[in-house]
Amino acid sequence: MDLRVDGLSHWYSDLEVLRDINLTIPQGQIVCVIGPSGCGKSTLLRLLGGLEQPTQGQVTQVGEPPVGSLNPLTYVFQDFALLPWRSVEDNVSLVLERHNLSKAEKEDRISDVLTRTRLSDFRKAVPKQLSGGMKQRVAIARALSVNPAVLLMDEPLSALDSQTRELLMDDLIDLWTREQFTSCYITHNLAEAVRLGHKVVVLSRRPGVVREVVDIDIPLANRRMSDPRIAEIQQDLWDMMREEAQTADLELAP
């Protein structure tokens, strides 16, 4: 299933946040969206998944979600959004409870996603006992458990320290290599974008418009930071962003 955005604009009362966005997230690809802070990246993601209504334009699902998908458009949040009073397995279970699954099927799904995210040993732990990276893996496991068509990821690594971030990025690449999930990945970190994105969408400062869409056709598994091609793309992206970021930095908060 693809996700297509047509002529999407958005205002918060008088403040124009996004202007005429056109964009496709093709099945099996990770589309990274980068831009200076306050450019409306997170708003775009909320519009994609229907957590907010666009002022203009629309978001369309093209094709059918995979069989057994309980929640085709599924989010992974920056600050994990785990319920602190529920254990790891119960946090996953939360999003399955309303779907009238048989006990066995529910259990299957939980064990499956926990294995895929290498969390099987921590089923009974509560979020407070877990490191930031583990917490985000729980959140990813929870997202995977509903078998989503598109994963909408809102700066999922930005609350983590840099080493954890590297490790989790490797995890995400492994995961994609195994099961080619579809995702829209919001970040302000260029390194993440060039490591994970099949396409990188650069947004301008507010009101956000699509400045450039960069395709990177090096397979995810083969991308190394030392690769000069990667370094070059990252440098190009930074050149595009630098001015926008500088100007955005000087603006007063709305």
Binding site: D79, V95, V146
Partner: peptide, 14 residues
């Protein structure tokens, strides 16, 4: 925490 509520909504909880 509002993000918890938004998380619930995003997974289609009633």
């Amino acid at each position: 925490d509002r993000t918890l509520i938004r998380m619930g909504q995003s997974f289609g909880l009633s």
